[in-house]
Deep mutational scan, measured.
Amino acid sequence: MGFKLLSKLLVYLTASIMAIASPLAFSVDSSGEYPTVSEIPVGEVRLYQIADGVWSHIATQSFDGAVYPSNGLIVRDGDELLLIDTAWGAKNTAALLAEIEKQIGLPVTRAVSTHFHDDRVGGVDVLRAAGVATYASPSTRRLAEVEGNEIPTHSLEGLSSSGDAVRFGPVELFYPGAAHSTDNLIVYVPSASVLYGGCAIYELSRTSAGNVADADLAEWPTSIERIQQHYPEAQFVIPGHGLPGGLDLLKHTTNVVKAHTNRSVVE
């Protein structure tokens, strides 16, 4: 069995187990497998329904001669939608809004960016022009300005110390501490036991640490421990890039980060 097929099978099995364990909360999309990078042309966006009122959005972007996937989250909030992270750029984010209108038909009224990198804030200006209120932590807003990236308009308070959590509509926002970046936030959907790890969490097929220019490698494993301790009931975990899975993604990420750190020390 090929690795790609095995990865998709694991996603399907995880979703099936969740649907059985929580039949009222989960209505997993039966329309197909989780979209992969090879299936999404740059400039297009796919939506994948995880649970009743919960979707991931998947886009792709060219970077350094390669094409990478990027995940975000959409959560229903009454007759409105909360968006977590842009679709990595203005063109993708405009396509995301169009796809949401086509498939869901509810307005996106608020959006949260989970850290300051372009795959999370690139497209904020498109959201703002569409009347979406954009939010991020003060740290993310400051770092985005320093980096020359787009800056969300509103500040999220109460997320300055490791372990801080605040309720934001249908989700809980959690600051686990520094990891992929010093400002990275985690998003949890309690009604569906869905954990969105953003770039602080890796997919299972990833074996290298990737972009760690703004990471705190020493603190990252401790931050992941905080996530595990705060959300032990999480059933569906979405990484910032690639295929979702279960809580095993947290341990896998820790292993990859520690291996990278150990290699760096040896070198």
Rank of each mutant, 00 (worst) to 15 (best):
A87F: 01
K4V: 04
T109E: 07
S155Q: 14
L250K: 03
E219Q: 11
R167D: 12
D77F: 07
I201G: 02
G158K: 10
P232I: 09
T140E: 04
M18I: 14
P107N: 12
K251T: 11
D216F: 05
S181F: 02
Y12M: 13
D85G: 01
V194T: 06
G240I: 06
W55F: 06
Q229F: 10
R120V: 00
G148Y: 07
D183S: 00
P138M: 08
R120T: 00
A178W: 07
I58Y: 15
D125F: 06
T86M: 00
E172T: 06
S155Y: 09
P138N: 08
A130E: 12
Q235I: 15
P221E: 09
T114H: 01
I17S: 09
R46M: 14
F26Y: 13
K258G: 12
Y34R: 15
A200T: 06
K4W: 04
R76V: 10
G197H: 01
G72M: 02
D164H: 12
Q103I: 13
F63V: 09
G148D: 09
V265L: 12
D125P: 03
V266L: 13
E33P: 08
L97H: 03
A144F: 03
N92A: 06
L159H: 06
L185T: 04
L243A: 15
L249V: 04
L156V: 08
A87P: 02
A179V: 06
V257D: 02
D85Q: 00
Q49S: 09
D214E: 06
S70V: 01
R142D: 14
V112D: 06
D85M: 01
A192D: 07
V237A: 03
L47P: 06
S113N: 06
A66C: 05
I201Q: 02
S38P: 08
I104P: 00
A218Q: 14
T207Q: 14
T253R: 00
G210F: 04
T261E: 11
D118R: 04
A213R: 10
Y34N: 12
D216M: 07
V146G: 13
D183W: 00
C199G: 01
L73D: 00
T222I: 09
A144H: 04
A192T: 12
N149F: 08
L249K: 01
E267A: 04
D183P: 01
T153Q: 12
D79I: 09
L143R: 11
R167T: 12
C199Q: 00
E39F: 07
L217M: 12
T60I: 14
A19L: 15
G245T: 02
L243E: 15
K8E: 14
N71W: 00
L217F: 06
A129D: 13
E233V: 12
S208N: 11
L143W: 09
S27K: 10
A165Q: 14
A59W: 04
V237W: 03
N149Y: 09
G177N: 02
M1E: 02
L96K: 00
Y175N: 08
P190G: 10
A66R: 10
E267C: 02
Y48D: 14
T93A: 02
D52E: 12
H260F: 07
M1I: 06
L185M: 11
D248T: 14
Y34C: 06
L5R: 11
S38Q: 08
S223R: 02
P190S: 11
C199S: 03
F63Y: 07
R263Y: 11
Q229A: 13
G210C: 05
S205K: 09
D216L: 06
